[in-house]
Every structure is written in C-alpha cells, then in structure tokens.
Design a protein around this nucleic acid. Structure first.
Lengths: 235, 235
DNA sequence: ACCTGAACACCGTTCAAGT
DNA sequence: ACCTGAACACCGTTCAAGT
C-alpha cells in the first residue's frame, strides 16, 4: 500500500531522463535494498546507484543515514494495522494490531530489527502511540494502567517479531549450532524433548497462545480494577 | 564473575612484553569497547589497538567478527542468573531469571542488542535453554506448554530489555522528537496524559507489573491444565 | 534546487611474510 | 603458534563545484 512515488516525466526510462529524487522514492528503494540484502547490505553508495544517482545526492534529501533509517521505520510502521474506533471492541483492535505488527517482522525480517533497536521518535510513531493509548482508554484503563499495558503489549509484539526473525533467517557468520536441527539428547535432553515445538513452523501457535494469555488477563483487569486503582511507585 | 585472563609473564607492562592473546581477553576488551563506545564503535582495528596488537592478530583467535560477537553474547549470557533447582520454587527461579536478564540490558545497553538481534547458537545458550526448560518441567508443564511458556518468557524478557535501552540511551542521529520531554497536548493528548508513566524512571514498576501478570497466569496454567492438555497445531 | 567528484578518515578480511 | 604489513574492496560524510 502507501504512496507511490510520482514520476514527473513520461519519458523516464534512461538514467539520463530520471525524475528528480524525493524522500518517498529513496525510502522505497532503501527498504527494497534491506529486504533483498539485509541491513548491513544497505549503503548510501549502493542505494544511490540503485536509484541511478551518486551517493552524495541522497544527502540532499536526508541529512544522514540515520534519518533515512527513521524514514524506513515510518514506512514499516505504516504496515501496522489498528482498526478504527467503533469497528470492533477496543481490546480486539489491539489484538489485531499486535498480530499485524508481527506480520511486519515476517514480511521484512531484515528491516524489522530497526523497529526493535532504534528509538521511535518520528511523528508517525507518536500518531500510532496515540491510537494505541486511545484504545486502552476506550477499554477503560486509567493513565497508569494504560502505560503499563502499552509497554506489556509492546514487549510482547517486539519479542515475538524478533523471534520470527531469529528462527527463520540464518546469520551466516555465527557459530554453527542450530536449534532447528538440534538433537543432542545426551547433553541437553530437555531441549531435545521440546525442540520440535520451538521450531519456526510452531511459532504461529505459540504466538496465538501468548496473545490469548495476555489479553485474557488484560480483559480481566479491565473488568475488575480499572480506573483509579493506584498501585504505587508511579514516578 | 567469569575467568580472568591469565598473564603469562610477570613483566608484562610494555607492549613489547605483552602476554599472548586469548579468546577470553579479546572478548573482555570487546565488551568494554562496546560498553564505552557502542556497537558501531567496535572495530577490529580499534579493538586490536586497545589490546596492543594489530587488528589482524585477532583473526588468529576468532575466524570473523561475527564469531567474536557470539563470544560477547556468551559473556553477557553468563550474567543471567537462574538459581539452582531446590533453592526456590521453579516459577520463582524463572522470575529471577527474567529480572536478571533485564539487568543485563541495564548494565550493557549497547551490547544487549546482540542478544535481541543475533541467533543464540552457542553452547552456553543451549545450556541456558536446558535449565529454563528444566524449571518449566519441574513446574509441571509438558513439552508443548514448556515451549510456549519458554517463548512467552523470552518475548517478555527481550522486549523489556530493549525498552530499557530505547528509553535510556539516545540515538544521536535520529529525528529529534523525544517522549521524555513530550508535551504536545493538541495533537497527541493521550500520549501527553500517559507520558509521565512511560518515562524511563517508571520502567521498574512497569516491568514488575508485567512480570506479575505473566507469572500469575503461568501459575494458574500450572495448577489447572498441565501435562497432557493437547492444544492442536503442534507441527 | 539538485546533483557530481574528489577527498578524508575509516571499515572487515585476505594473503604472504616474518619470528 | 602467533603476529605483522600491505593490499583489496569497501564504508559515511564533507566540501567545493557544477547546472
């Protein structure tokens, strides 16, 4: 989805007649590059030549690689789905959000690391925060509990996404022991016994289990103690 | 506390009379470098000169920077505390583990990212898995539920650790909007209302809240449905 | 306004050589 | 066995210059 970069001239096929760059087009190319070659595979020089331009041209649109990566984060975040108020109960909307957040990791395993590691400091991130906190408010939670559940949901979504990446992708330069194929029953019998349920193809079930557990508890909290149940050590 | 690197000669003070390098000493220096200057600040060249050696000497002990980073991960993991069986109830031991895992993030904010982003493929990681799964077994869970709770606990621990990093450290190259000082009540009123409970100094309370919520639910599962309650879609 | 070219100060890693 | 030196193929970014 999201905005397609507009081509100014109809004759933009040779690199001579290229339309002028813009931030959207650069972010699109950067995400494609990361998806294809990994986060380490993105360099300003390679990105430039993918766009038919010298690397230094990019600095006219982004002051640094860091801000370009923030742009990629915003693009990823735009793939998160939080249904509008009224379409379904608040907690169901949040559940949908967490599911869609995990899907970002599955669709963009290399780029998702950015969401886990870099600060969310962009406008789009704050707009998303606002909507999540709105849903928690709608579910009846006060500021203290909204903050706590916001964090809890975030921890789970982030951890689940990272687990997808770790389970499905291979770090080529790492020590060669693999959970997927693990079977040393002598030394790690418990790991061997459980390994088959830890594999990547079990992650869907594991994720839904955890999500149910979390939201069951959240629902209970919403029904019982919400609004005004102070619980110390706020600041 | 882990092994101190042995100095072979008593007269090792000039760089001429340096004791021969070993993996432990290199990992110690690498972690110190990461703690001091961040993950991007670690280069084989700088690490070499910190050890009084050419960068290329390190390749005699580690085949690549990736395997060195695996060594740093093992060192970090050694700081995780999982009390021995019998010292306290199994679920309390796991709770202690999650708390200590978060402390790794607080002590080593830059290096912790490695634990979140790289695969755990080392011996030490598998040994830790084994002990966690042992505790879950002791608490009465079968293989399916052990796997699910193993993941759930991992997601929470990982997410909580990353939140510590994101909240406390500053990415200098990022877009300059900060939650810590946020107060745009016009555009993001809910964020503004909750911001004070999302700040870094609230994270202790938030973490303990989530931990209680998680382990309350885990305890209930252990009491009721454990051992043999199959729940579909295993493989 | 938008982009280029050269340069600066770096990277990880290979490879042959030294002791 | 352990380390060095030179080299290769890269980096992000600055700066002056071009159109």
């Amino acid at each position: 989805m999201s905005s397609a970069p507009e081509r100014a001239t109809p004759r933009s096929r040779g690199k001579a007649a290229r339309a002028p760059l813009n931030r959207d087009a650069i972010v699109t190319a950067a995400l494609a590059e990361i998806d294809a070659k990994g986060l380490e595979g993105l360099s300003m020089r390679r990105l430039g030549s993918a766009l038919g331009v010298e690397a230094m041209a990019l600095y006219h649109h982004f002051p640094s690689k860091g801000e370009l990566l923030d742009g990629v984060m915003e693009r990823l975040l735009a793939e998160a789905e939080l249904p509008p108020s009224g379409s379904m109960p608040a907690l169901e909307r949040l559940r949908t959000f967490v599911r869609s957040y995990r899907q970002i990791a599955i669709r963009h395993p290399h780029a998702f690391v950015l969401l886990a590691v870099r600060r969310f400091n962009t406008e789009a991130a704050f707009a998303l925060y606002e909507r999540i906190l709105d849903a928690l408010d709608e579910a009846g939670f006060d500021a203290v509990h909204s903050a706590r559940l916001f964090r809890l949901i975030g921890y789970y979504a982030s951890g689940a996404g990272l687990a997808e990446i770790a389970s499905r992708s291979q770090e080529p330069d790492a020590t060669p022991v693999h959970l997927e194929t693990f079977s040393d029953r002598q030394r790690f019998p418990r790991v061997a016994a459980v390994a088959r349920y830890l594999r990547a193809n079990s992650l869907d079930a594991v994720f839904e289990f955890g999500l149910d557990l979390l939201f069951d508890e959240i629902r209970k909290q919403a029904a019982v103690g919400k609004r005004g149940r102070e619980a110390g050590s706020g600041e």
